[in-house]
Design a protein around this nucleic acid. Structure first.
Length: 518
RNA sequence: GGCGGCGUAGCUCAGUUGGUUAGAGCACGCGGCUCAUAUCCGCGGAGUCGUAGGUUCGAGUCCUACCGCCGCCA
């Protein structure tokens, strides 16, 4: 009986629509989640995503659109949800931090933490800009004391606020990071995390007076304050699942795997573990950190404005293409260069020429030479000259599920796809070397041609099955062409498709794209 | 300023504990096949492995300095 697992993306701050960078995270988490469902069974996996809708940045974005915060976040959250749906992100939970249940849950956690003694009241002192309605740190200021937005002096103010004891838990968290090698992965980020935790981190201000910001969740122990955005957003990882199962968080935290961007490493390594420990809960299992997508020379982000709409790629190139591209092209954890030209290159080379064409050539031969039916007249043994090719193909295909599992488990999505494509390459070489299209013209050798096509179909079946997490729509289409149901899709080679089995005529899964400049 | 990462063919990148003529894919050139989506198969050209030193019988792989790009921290 395999363990259950809880998988999350970051909770996306929805002051602007999603871009390809946010989609990348959702897609990576989705590939992982789908893989886990295949491995552990559907009921062992929960996959959660959602939108973070409180705070002053969102309120300002709403005002800029002439809308109330709630109306604006209703709209933006729906945009995210629809985008993920269109990209076939198979979330089980889509959480909104403005959902009444979430707000109630955050209040429960605040109350619990307050009663445990890890929240205290003290003066918060800082440099405040009245125009921006926010605090600035000294390094953010222009010419020593000017607000970068309004170019006018900030004020030093002191106000009462509530603080969470972060520093109290720093050493405990640091030890955990040091002791558990795969708590933060890839490893490069683990070292950064240890560096952050080596120095005092101070305590975290988790409140704002309502007089300054009312767009937030009210503190259960002081109605004059709302909680600050980070404290609120983290609990979205568990609020919704805890609605039906109150112990979900304590039970599943050790089996929780978070996917985040490297920009929020600190919050997940310093704040989140302390928030959990202060609430008397265990630490999560893994924090998986991905890199940025570089787009036109700069990190794709809302603030740089170089954003690309992920859904437009889905409509332009068809389902699965964007997710194939980002998983195949980028090493998880490292930054990568995103370009539409590159996407088209990969589409033509990998999807049209390799996957699409191989499918087409094999189905065409079965259809043309054997009326679409896997022939019963198949020879029991390969020709001597073919034996080596056949064994090479079967070895590849046989080992594929284990190798892919190993790679995906370690977040090596790119290598996993490379491995699948190696099997595809071997299959193409096998057909080129054995030439079933020649054999079939010799009545004595039709049985050999049948054998070769059978092996090719079986290879394609396994490949289609292994492709499901990466290309769910394509996988389904392939299995449909092969006329294989989901249950028999992942059987070992030789046990899926049987003589007498009827397959469908070929279709162009990925029509080649002409050389158009992006 | 401190710490860390990166810099390898036109492009995107692999290169394990230092060891024979530095690899892959794409792009490019030539040849072959014809079942297939002008697809597939084979062959080929191309790189002073950021710069300069050093350790070593031998370094892309270790050490030092420098240049460039990027993070994190102060």
């Amino acid at each position: 009986m395999s363990e259950a697992i809880h998988i999350t993306t970051a909770i996306f701050y929805c002051n602007a629509p999603p871009h390809v960078g946010s989609a990348y995270e959702a897609l990576a988490a989705d590939v992982f989640a789908r893989h886990q469902r295949r491995k552990r069974g559907k009921d062992k996996v929960t996959f959660l995503t959602g939108t973070d809708e409180h705070g002053d940045k969102l309120k300002r974005a709403a005002l800029a659109h002439g809308m109330e915060p709630k109306a604006f976040s209703d709209r933006m959250s729906a945009v995210f949800r629809d985008a993920w749906r269109k990209l076939n992100v198979s979330f089980d939970f889509f959480v909104r931090t403005t959902d009444p249940w979430h707000e109630q849950f955050v209040q429960q956690m605040l109350k619990r933490t307050y009663e445990r003694g890890d929240i205290y009241f003290a003066d918060y002192q800082g440099l405040y800009c009245v125009g921006c309605e926010r605090f600035y740190t000294e390094k953010e200021l222009v010419d020593g004391n000017l607000c970068p937005e309004h170019n006018r002096p900030v004020e030093f103010i002191s106000e009462g606020n509530y603080f969470l004891r972060l520093e109290k838990y720093r050493e405990q968290v640091r030890e955990h990071v040091a002791r558990v090698p795969d708590f933060i992965r890839p490893e490069r980020y683990r070292n950064e995390a240890l560096a952050m935790l080596a120095e005092p981190v101070g305590d975290l201000c988790i409140s704002r007076p309502k007089a300054r910001l009312d767009w937030g969740i009210e503190l259960p122990f002081d109605p004059n304050y709302v909680t600050y955005v980070w404290y609120d957003a983290f609990w979205a990882y568990f609020s919704e699942p805890c609605r039906t199962e109150p112990d979900f968080a304590s039970r599943m935290l050790p089996y929780t795997t978070h996917f985040i961007g490297k920009d929020i490493l600190k919050t997940h390594v310093v704040y989140w573990p302390a928030i959990l420990l202060a609430a008397g809960l265990p630490l999560p299992g893994h924090i998986n950190v991905h890199g940025y997508l570089i787009f036109g020379g700069a990190r794709m982000s809302k603030s740089s404005g170089n954003i690309a709409d992920p859904v437009s790629y889905e409509t332009t190139y068809g389902p699965d293409v964007l997710r194939y591209f980002v998983m195949r092209e980028f090493v998880f954890g490292l930054d990568g260069e995103f370009s539409e030209e590159r996407l088209i290159e990969r589409y033509n080379a990998d999807l049209a020429n390799d996957l699409g064409n191989f499918t087409s050539r094999v189905l065409a031969m079965v259809s043309r030479y054997f009326g679409g039916v896997v022939p019963a007249e198949m020879e029991p043994k390969p020709l001597d000259t073919h034996a080596e090719w056949e064994r090479a193909l079967m070895d590849r295909v046989n080992g594929l599920p284990t190798r892919v599992d190993d790679l995906v488990t370690n977040l090596a999505f790119k290598q996993a796809l490379e491995t699948i494509w190696e099997a595809l390459d071997t299959a193409n070489k096998y057909v080129a070397a054995t030439q079933p299209f020649v054999l079939v013209k010799d009545p004595d050798k039709r049985g050999q041609a049948a054998r070769i096509l059978f092996n090719s179909l079986e290879a394609l079946r396994i490949i289609a099955s292994e492709l499901e997490p990466f290309m769910p729509v394509t996988s389904k289409k392939l299995l449909d062409l092969l006329n294989v149901d989901v249950e028999s899709a992942s059987l070992p080679p030789g046990e899926g498709i049987k003589p007498g089995h009827r397959v469908k005529p070929p279709v162009a899964l990925f029509p080649r794209i002409g050389q158009t400049k992006a």
